[in-house]
Simulated assay, not measured.
Amino acid sequence: MPIAPGDTCPTFRLPDDRGEMVASDDLVGQPFVLYFYPKDDTSGCTLEAVEFTRLKGEFEAIGVPVFGVSPDPVKKHGKFRDKHELAVRLLSDEEKVLLSAFGIWVEKSMYGRKYMGVERTTALVSSDGTIARLWPKVKVPGHAEEVLEAARQLTAPA
């Protein structure tokens, strides 16, 4: 069953595009964004990564780090980052542990062929570790701006 707003974010410990480990325990006390995407260097995934990179400074200004997550290996993430000058950290979930915990490693179909893949999804995690907002089946154009606006609302003084 897919994760829902209000649920606790599953714990994770994954290598980033430089091989450095990122753990949910290290993010306790601050909100963060996890955007899950199918594959490095495909058109939609590249556009999404470029849009989040373009807005990285604005996310940083409100104290919300952004992480892209896909099942691609660390080395492929590094090539993808360098080729498109990406500034967001890309996490490698080769074992699909976090993808499965979110319920987004799913059966897909293309041209009648069935296969397992990532359902493009974004989660905004609040500082208490719960899912504040969830965007399932993301359409890429304008998505990063929508996530930034939600992050601004989440971090705005009460």
Rank of each mutant, 00 (worst) to 15 (best):
L55M: 09
P31M: 04
R120N: 06
D7E: 05
S109C: 09
L55A: 06
G103K: 08
Y37L: 07
L91E: 06
D17A: 07
M21Q: 13
K79E: 06
I104H: 12
A156S: 15
Q30T: 00
A23H: 04
A144R: 13
F32K: 05
P71D: 04
V118W: 10
F12H: 08
L154A: 02
P157L: 12
R18S: 09
S24R: 15
Q30L: 01
G57Q: 01
T130G: 06
A101S: 14
P15Q: 06
K96P: 01
V125W: 02
E149L: 11
L154P: 03
H143I: 10
R18M: 04
K83F: 02
A150V: 03
T130W: 03
T121I: 09
D41C: 03
L14N: 10
Y37P: 08
P136H: 08
D25E: 12
D72T: 13
H84K: 14
G6Y: 08
D82A: 10
A49H: 07
K96T: 14
G117C: 05
A150E: 13
M116H: 07
V64S: 03
E95K: 15
L99E: 04
V28Q: 14
T53W: 08
E51G: 05
P136C: 03
K114I: 06
R81Q: 09
D41R: 13
H77D: 10
S43C: 03
A4V: 13
Y111P: 04
A61N: 09
V64G: 08
M116D: 12
K83V: 01
P38M: 07
K76N: 11
S109W: 00
M21D: 07
V106N: 15
E20T: 07
A132K: 07
R18L: 07
V50M: 03
G112C: 04
P5A: 13
